[in-house]
């Protein structure tokens, strides 16, 4: 029933359309970034929960050998 009422609102289709477009564009942008991201950064992030026990945190950004 809500659907029927919502449909009577003038130009209501613009709202899901806006949300769909924002989402699609953001998703593509995010995906593109994830694919291209620096592997060192990923490795560093992955290790974050693991390296509590040994305190020396390796910083991938300052430690570029």
């Amino acid at each position: 029933m809500q659907k029927e009422i919502l449909r009577t609102i003038e130009n209501v289709e613009i709202y899901p359309l806006i949300s769909l477009i924002i989402f699609v564009l953001f998703f593509i942008g995010m995906f593109w970034w994830v694919v291209r991201v620096d592997q060192k950064y990923i490795d560093h992030m992955k290790q974050l929960p693991m390296n509590e026990e040994h305190q020396k945190t390796s910083d991938h950004e300052t430690n570029k050998n």
Binding site: Q2, K3, L6, R7, V12, E13, Y15, P16, L17, S19, L20, I22, F23, F26, F27
Partner: peptide, 17 residues
């Protein structure tokens, strides 16, 4: 972001082009 799409999608799906 699912919720910005899926929410209105549930409600107004049939009104879409």
């Amino acid at each position: 972001f699912i919720y910005i799409w899926a929410g209105p999608h549930h409600l107004l799906y049939t009104a879409l082009p």
